[in-house]
């Protein structure tokens, strides 16, 4: 990969830092009137998700990280790996449990996710913002109690547990926002 000098730093640029791929969130030039210039950079470690702050001397360079985001279809899991497919080439990629991370709770076969590839292997998976999933386990629905605005836990087909209104029953399909894990509404089938 190419090296990037501090004057090429901008948000979104992917760099290697201490052996991990990172993405620049912010870059600010600090230049004391009579002193050396430096770049104050906020980065997200793409492996751990942690945000860190570093200050580099102006002109210093870091190795670029071979990181690309790609839309891929989720196929299936075999207990060890989760399989995703590039829609154009049908090339399949296997992701570890660590790479799939939180997305495990929302993955439904055939859904299109954003898979971040690092050196060609899945580093992280972002599920679609909204997914429609069936309730497989919850307390019996209380019809006519919609005004109360109470909620109860419901287990979904993927294993995720979300809070849903009291009137919903097992077998109902609901829309969930995967970024917040919140119930968005019932899907009429």
């Amino acid at each position: 990969m190419a090296n990037y000098s501090t004057n090429e730093f901008r948000s979104g640029l992917k760099l290697m830092l201490d052996g991990d791929p990172c993405s620049i969130l912010e870059n600010e030039l600090v230049k004391p009137g009579k002193g050396q210039a430096f770049s104050r950079v906020k980065l997200r470690n793409l492996k751990t998700g942690r945000v860190l702050e570093k200050t580099f001397k102006s002109g210093e360079s870091l190795e670029g990280a071979d990181v690309v985001d790609m839309d891929m279809q989720y196929l299936y899991e075999d207990g060890d790996f989760w399989y995703f497919m590039e829609p154009d080439t049908f090339e399949q990629h296997q992701a570890t449990e660590q790479a799939v991370g939180e997305a495990i709770k929302w993955l439904r076969e055939q859904d299109v996710c954003v898979v971040t590839l690092y050196n060609g292997s899945p580093l992280s998976v972002v599920p679609p913002n909204h997914v429609d999933l069936a309730i497989v386990e919850t307390d019996p629905g209380l019809r006519g109690d919609t005004a109360q605005g109470g909620s109860k836990p419901a287990k979904l087909v993927t294993g995720a547990v979300v809070k849903v209104p009291l009137f919903l029953d097992e077998g109902d399909v609901i829309k969930v926002d995967t970024r917040t894990g919140e119930y968005q509404g019932r899907v009429k089938e």
Binding site: G35, Q36, F38, K54, T55, F56, K57, E60
Partner: peptide, 14 residues
């Protein structure tokens, strides 16, 4: 510690 590893070689002024 505050900046990055490369400061370990820098001058007092820097």
């Amino acid at each position: 510690e505050l900046g990055s590893e490369s400061w370990a070689e820098e001058s007092r002024a820097n």
